[in-house]
Design a protein around this nucleic acid. Structure first.
Lengths: 190, 190
DNA sequence: TTTATTCTAGAATGCATATTCTAAATCCTG
DNA sequence: CAGGATTTAGAATATGCATTCTAGAATAAA
């Protein structure tokens, strides 16, 4: 084989760097290979498409985020799950900006590549299951209103408390936690 | 003059319809003129660029939304301002989806057309001023933490309570108001 | 050393879009 | 009606991108 100069992970790393700096839309095949001085052929030797690259990037980040969230839910601690967002954002500011300031469809517009579809579906369902479990355990049952209440407390409130800081590239301050805690307690009867 | 078949407002209406159905990215010059059977020349006779069209659309919607919000703030009623989001979303479901499910940069990527720049800047500052006024009146002063607290209660919480419904094209139910009220009261000390 | 395999190289292709250009049609005014 | 202004019309141009293609270079295995 010809001397391998470019590994898959190199392309992924370049994509990540570009996405962090200029957003997912700026991750074009051209910008990626330009960023690392690789020819187009080398890219397509590793990745079947641009979508595959961006999809992998998103999935990797979302799964990393999810881990701590799920752990808290499984421990039955909803407040900890809600507070996981600012905590994770502090430790992973750049990835948090990527994940929380953009939508999934900013990474992949339209259908996901076959190779990733399973992973994405599993990710979605894992999240949905966690929220459902929380609703049942803490709110009594998984009636629609309870699911929405749970989702609000666990997902939307933390996101809202953190987004304004991420936009300024600042780690969420203690106030973010305080706001989340207050809203959580107000919405999830103790 | 040749018989005017296409008014500016026709293009704006077509853009709105397309954006509502498929998102701002689907508003291309081609899709707009295709949607109304107009030639490209007629479009460019009315609009200097696609950005101008999309920018006008966004600005029109955001200003419509803002009106009620500002009225509540000026009346000194923060809770009413927070509840304006679900109320407006109920009355303007499709525009609310457009405004709240997408970001400004999904309409205009990069620099805004000169013709709209003033309007956008004014819009931003009007909003910032309103939040500041609220912070001073209700939280004592406009220290950074107070501004962020105000923004959370007035903007982020309502958005979070409403987004999940908008995504499903459903008007926000009473629960949305209840969640907003609870979070608002918890965060804005009475 | 030969040969098959794995990659690098980067030019060529194709497609979706925005925008421009030129011509002609329609209407208003004198 | 003549002449100028306004609009329609839509083909032509330009650009940015993803992707494909064909050649050739570097390596491992035989």
């Amino acid at each position: 084989m010809a001397r391998p100069r470019f590994a898959s992970t190199d392309f992924l790393a370049a994509a990540r760097a570009l996405a962090r700096q200029h957003g997912p839309a700026a991750v074009t095949v051209g910008s990626v290979i330009g960023h690392m001085g690789a020819p187009a052929g080398s890219f397509y030797y590793r990745y079947a498409s641009r979508d595959l690259l961006l999809g992998e990037l998103w999935l990797e980040i979302v799964l990393a985020f999810q881990k701590g969230f799920l752990a808290a839910i499984e421990a039955g601690d909803g407040l900890a799950a809600a507070l996981h967002t600012p905590a994770w954002a502090r430790e992973n500011l750049e990835d948090a900006r990527l994940l929380l300031l953009h939508r999934r469809r900013d990474f992949i517009h339209g259908d996901w590549p076959e190779a990733l579809r399973n992973g994405v579906v599993r990710q979605e369902e894992t999240m949905k299951t966690a929220v459902t479990r929380f609703a049942q355990a803490t709110l009594g049952d998984a009636a629609p209103d309870n699911l929405n209440r749970a989702r609000f407390a666990l997902v939307e409130v933390p996101l809202g408390a953190v987004r304004m800081y991420l936009e300024r590239r600042e780690p969420p301050p203690p106030l973010a936690d305080e706001l989340i805690r207050a809203a959580y307690n107000a919405v999830i009867a103790p």
